[in-house]
C-alpha cells in the first residue's frame, strides 16, 4: 500500500512555500469575513435610513 503511493519528502523551500500559501489563504479568509461583515452593516444601515426617509 505504502509502496504504491508516490512519496516525496518536501524540501525546506517547498515547506516554506506551503506555509506562505497557507498564511495567504488564512488572511484571504479573514478579509472575506470582514468584507461580508462591513457589507451587511452598510446594507442594513442604508435599508434603515430608506425606511426612516420613506
Amino acid at each position: 500500500m505504502a509502496e504504491d503511493m508516490q512519496t516525496h519528502t518536501p524540501t525546506d523551500e517547498e515547506r516554506a512555500r506551503q506555509r506562505k500559501r497557507s498564511v495567504v489563504i488564512a488572511w484571504s479568509l479573514v478579509a472575506l469575513v470582514i468584507l461580508f461583515f462591513v457589507t451587511t452593516v452598510v446594507r442594513m444601515s442604508s435599508n434603515i435610513s430608506m425606511q426612516a426617509g420613506g
Binding site: 503511493m5 508516490q6 516525496h8 519528502t9 518536501p10 512555500r17 506551503q18 500559501r21 495567504v24
Partner: peptide, 23 residues
C-alpha cells in the same frame, strides 16, 4: 509518521509546489 508522509506525498502529487507569486 506514515499519515504525515502520505499527506505530503498526496499533496505534492497534485502539485502544491507553486509560490504565492506564481499564483
Amino acid at each position: 509518521d506514515m499519515m504525515q508522509q502520505g499527506r505530503e506525498a498526496h499533496s505534492f502529487a497534485l502539485g502544491g509546489k507553486g509560490a504565492v507569486e506564481d499564483f
